Simulated assay, not measured.
Amino acid sequence: MSGSAAGRSEEMRRRGDERDGALLDALLEGRDDPGLTVRAACGLDLPEQGRYAVAVLRAGGDGPPGAVMEAEGLRFFRRGRTDREIVVVALGDRDTAVLAPLLERSCPGPGGIGPVADGLAGLGAACRLAELALLTCPPGTTGIVRLEDRLPAALLVSQPELSARLVSDVLGPLLALAPADRALLVRTLDAWLECGGSAGRAAGRLYCHRNTVLNRLRRLERLTSRSLSRPRELIEMTLALDAFRLTAPQP
């Protein structure tokens, strides 16, 4: 092939990639464009009614933006943004649980994966929900999470004004403590929750006596005027703690 012919071929390939990228962007933005899904299906060689997942990653992975990659029998379409990367995955009959380990090979996260989109027309909604899943990752953390595993936190980040009010109303006195004192009580509550409400198991995790855990929890109850033994009040405290962590992580 002559140099001019090779150049024309490369230019045609570049234009084709740009066209396909524009179609994918339009789907991710949820544009109401008649015939868009049909054109995208043809251009991207994808089934219009297939199963898809969208992941939003805060740090870009390896490889050029816009690349189409394959791994473990799945096709990945990458679209770069200023401060993040969007990845569309043609799932076939696979579950979204397989995606996080695959994505973390090239990007440690943080990142969020939305629910399965049934068809190309659902990519816009899936992308918005993947963004929401990303927001449930506290600053400074890594890992790629699924929205369905972070629904309570997703509710919080979707309503920032209410979340701020919840933090203020429930944790106000706790937040007034010295940072080290506050962090100690928060770590104790976290351990207690992760251990299913067992003070003994939490004590083992925190390397302290069971009574020490109980004393710290009682102090937390006094500060918040809420009881950990009352389910509704426990839910309030847990949600408020999650909201606080997402907006002002402990040092």
Rank of each mutant, 00 (worst) to 15 (best):
M1R: 09
E11M: 14
R15P: 06
D20C: 15
D25Q: 15
G30K: 02
R31D: 08
D32Q: 13
P34K: 11
T37R: 11
R39W: 12
G43R: 10
L44G: 13
A53N: 09
L57I: 03
R58Q: 15
D62A: 12
G63Y: 09
P65D: 12
A67M: 09
M69D: 12
F77M: 09
T82I: 14
R84L: 14
I86W: 03
V89N: 01
A90F: 02
G92F: 04
D95E: 12
A97W: 05
P101C: 06
P110C: 12
G111I: 01
G112N: 06
G112K: 04
G114P: 02
G114N: 00
G122Y: 04
G124I: 06
C127A: 15
E131D: 07
L134P: 01
P139R: 06
T142W: 11
L147A: 01
D149K: 10
R150I: 09
P152T: 12
A154N: 04
A154Y: 01
L155H: 09
V157W: 00
Q159E: 12
P160N: 02
E161P: 10
L162K: 11
L166K: 01
S168C: 10
L174F: 02
A176Q: 11
A176Y: 03
A178G: 07
P179E: 03
R182G: 03
L184K: 08
T188F: 07
D190K: 14
E194L: 14
S198K: 02
S198L: 11
G200T: 13
R201T: 01
G204A: 11
Y207M: 13
C208N: 04
N211D: 15
T212Y: 08
L223G: 05
L223K: 09
R226W: 02
L228I: 02
S229C: 13
R232S: 10
L234Q: 07
I235N: 06
A240F: 01
L241W: 08
D242N: 14
A243G: 06
R245F: 13
T247N: 11
T247C: 04
P249K: 08
Q250N: 09
P251A: 14
